[in-house]
């Protein structure tokens, strides 16, 4: 079912090739390859500091890898230099990528000065130049879809964490993205609130949305992903289908990790 090699005629949405990322002397990513084809749900797992969030942030260029290629819908990112640092040279391409890879953050990051609905329609209106009335209608639909249609005119601080994260997912969906990037979407939530967010993510997976999910939640990874990647110390130690990775774990490092998280088997 999964075709993560990108060679079986499926359409790659985002490809990361030989990604290296360093902070000063600390090498966080040491040559990572990742391909997300249309309809893939990829789970990135690993302990804190393994580089999984950094890898995700490289995909929409919130982090700029010093080395390696990023190919979005067949187009490789063009690089320039600024103050000796590699940086994307084509602003339109950058915008194209970011609007198509909408991100959901651990801390939700809803814009605090806008209502929930304003949060959802902000980027569609200012960046995608959508008609405000239409964007509002669609925003309401999406908030209904994630189950908080009644919270449209509330401010983020008036919502629970689970509601905020669902609003953030609605905001991501409003971009009509080619793929969604989730950066530990449930880590800041207590179990009860976590469940409501997981349900939304599962529903999106069933719709066939392309998603890359960084998570500590092994159950979420097992349930929704079709491909699981285990990162350790900036390299991919093991990857495969959820069954391969969780049921037939090969590497000792992953066995250790799963044992420590209490999710073995």
């Amino acid at each position: 079912m999964n075709s993560n090699t990108g060679s079986t005629g499926s359409v790659p949405v985002i490809e990361l090739r030989n990604i290296h990322k360093k902070y000063d002397d600390l090498e966080v990513l040491k040559g990572i390859d990742l391909v997300a084809n249309k309809g893939d749900v990829i789970a990135l797992i690993g302990s804190s500091g393994s580089g999984k969030s950094t890898l995700l942030r490289c995909a929409n260029l919130l982090e700029i890898p010093q080395q390696g290629d990023i190919i979005f819908q067949g187009q490789a990112v063009t690089w320039g230099k600024k103050k000796g640092q590699r940086t994307p040279s084509d602003k339109n391409q950058l915008q194209q990528m970011r609007t198509n890879l909408s991100m959901v953050f651990q801390q939700f990051n809803l814009w605090a000065h806008m209502t929930v609905l304003q949060n959802v329609v902000e980027a569609p209106i200012t960046v995608l130049k959508q008609n405000p009335a239409e964007a509002n209608n669609r925003g309401r639909e999406l908030l209904d879809k994630v189950g908080i249609g009644d919270k449209c005119d509330q401010f983020p601080s008036q919502l629970s964490g689970g509601q905020q994260q669902r609003a953030a997912i609605a905001r991501a969906l409003a971009m009509n993205p080619a793929a969604m990037l989730f950066d530990e979407p449930t880590s800041a939530l207590d179990p009860e609130l976590e469940a409501e967010v997981v349900r939304v993510i599962q529903a999106l997976a069933l719709e066939g949305r392309t998603m890359i999910i960084v998570t500590h939640d092994m159950k979420l990874a097992y349930d929704v992903a079709n491909h699981v990647i285990f990162l350790h110390d900036g390299v991919i130690v093991e990857q495969g289908t959820p069954d391969e990775v969780f049921k037939n774990t090969r590497s000792p490092r992953l066995q250790q990790f799963l044992a420590a998280t209490g999710q073995e088997g």
Partner: peptide, 16 residues
């Protein structure tokens, strides 16, 4: 910072 980063992540230009 995360408020601004999120705006960038959604494709906004620096001035936006």
């Amino acid at each position: 910072h995360n408020q601004l980063e999120t705006a960038r992540a959604y494709g906004m230009s620096d001035s936006q």
